[in-house]
């Protein structure tokens, strides 16, 4: 719940983040990601689970800058990712086309000891099999948007 003594944050709840196309993780992309974290890729066609974040972020309908713009926040002001939750229904696989559905859940305006005033922004993304319509995972990311203009 937002601080009632502060001006209300922009009402962005429900803003669609659904992507227009599909995203397919290639075996080569998965291998590059795995090796960048010092492991070898799985041999059974499953992708590294961190693709939950990468694929949903790349496949959503707006960039982080675009989400910030929807929240009337300049990305150059330095948004900070504060948290991420995910629940998998099944593993992510290479070579499978997925689409990303999602929306902004809302902004909560708060006072912060370190940031003065900030908006806590949450958005939910769902990775869905493009062929079978099965939801593979649901993830919610949260970002802090420092509102320096309100901090005085």
């Amino acid at each position: 719940m937002s601080d009632p003594e502060l001006p209300p944050p922009p009402d962005v709840s429900g803003t669609s983040l659904s992507g227009a196309g599909t995203i397919t993780i290639s075996a080569e992309q998965n291998a590059a990601l795995c090796r960048s974290t010092r492991i070898e890729p799985a041999a059974d066609g499953t992708a590294h689970p961190i693709w939950f974040f990468v694929a949903s972020q790349v496949g959503m309908g707006r960039s982080v800058a675009g989400i910030c713009e929807a929240c009337e926040f300049d990305v150059n002001e330095g948004p900070m990712m504060t948290g991420s939750r995910v629940t998998f229904s099944q593993p992510i696989r290479t070579g499978v086309p997925y689409r990303v559905d999602g929306e902004i859940k809302g902004l909560t305006r708060k006072r912060s000891r370190t940031l003065g005033v900030m908006d806590l922004m949450e958005y939910e993304l769902r990775l869905v099999g493009a062929d079978d319509g099965e939801t593979v995972l649901v993830t919610t990311n949260s970002w802090a948007l420092p509102r320096r203009e309100l901090a005085a």
């Binding site: 990601l33 974290t37 492991i39 590294h48 504060t82 948290g83 629940t87």
Partner: peptide, 24 residues
């Protein structure tokens, strides 16, 4: 977060991640 997922996969090879909830 990927390093943590690597740790879980190596430590618990008969299990797969169903959910995570982390703070940066």
């Amino acid at each position: 977060l990927a390093y943590i997922l690597n740790m879980l996969a190596a430590a618990l090879p008969d299990w797969r991640v169903e959910s995570t909830d982390v703070r940066f």
